[in-house]
Design a binder for these strands. Structure first.
Lengths: 140, 140
DNA sequence: CTTGTTGCAAACGCTTTGCATATCA
DNA sequence: TGATATGCAAAGCGTTTGCAACAAG
């Protein structure tokens, strides 16, 4: 699925919307915000594309409450996220040596093929000071 | 919901089954394994009770692929899990000072009310050497 | 033209809920 | 007995899929 990467209208819109949102967003959010701008794209198409892009490492993903959040990748190398619980705004960070540290510790406990998931959640300054929801977006 | 904590047959069975499984398990797994032992308990009851127990910190929870996994708490204080991807067997561990470290780092980035989620996944020795799925269980 | 994509609607899998019935204390 | 918990089946929610129509190259 999605082997050829054609440039279609829906794809352009999805990427553009991800850019506007600039925060971890669900497929539904992308869909809704596109609708709000009068751009019609089938929700299935959005799910399919977000999934495919994530598979190609073009998007970062995050799981919360059984929902998948996507965001355009900023950083190429392995990193973690500090995500605002209110608006989804995100800061990326890395912990040098963390990967090796976990692998090592796990191995000493008899585990192999180790992977890890680390996410930090909090409330960003802007949200703490007033704003309640996602901002971004503006012109067309 | 569940304010009184009555000792009912379903509850006894659920806790007993969690003990037998001794690995992170989903509501469905608990249900299925109870069925396998000929113990009939409604799936809704299982969901309700696991949820309530987790709310009372009697169970640890873990989220993966949009499913919630539960396991009897072994350790009272804050800790993380190293979970076997194949059988769900788990090792608990803690990282001294990790909590403070994350809070501090996040604060320096303008975030407050920081929480974190860290899980390690791997394949345990037993699974690597042959066994493919959950074992446990035996007599009645 | 040909093949990859889309959009719709129906299907899915996990979880939750409404409500009449059964049960603990 | 009376409040609480259970079980069933239906609903909910996010996500996926089948398939005919469509559009990019």
């Amino acid at each position: 699925m999605f082997a050829s990467r054609r440039v279609t209208r829906p794809r352009v819109l999805i990427v553009e919307q991800l850019n506007r949102l600039d925060a971890f967003s669900t497929a539904q959010t992308v869909y809704t915000s596109l609708c709000a701008r009068g751009k019609k794209v089938g929700i299935a198409t959005i799910y399919r594309n977000l999934q495919a892009m994530a598979g190609r490492q073009e998007l970062d993903t995050l799981h919360m409450d059984g929902e998948t959040f996507y965001r355009l990748c900023k950083d190429r190398h392995h990193h973690h996220h500090l995500v605002c619980r209110k608006c989804g705004r995100t800061v990326e960070f890395e912990i040098p040596g963390f990967e090796e540290w976990t692998r090592e510790g796990a191995r000493s406990l008899g585990f192999s093929e180790v992977s890890h998931s680390l996410e930090l959640f909090g409330v960003c300054k802007r949200c703490r000071l007033g704003a309640t929801s996602n901002d971004s977006d503006a012109s067309d």
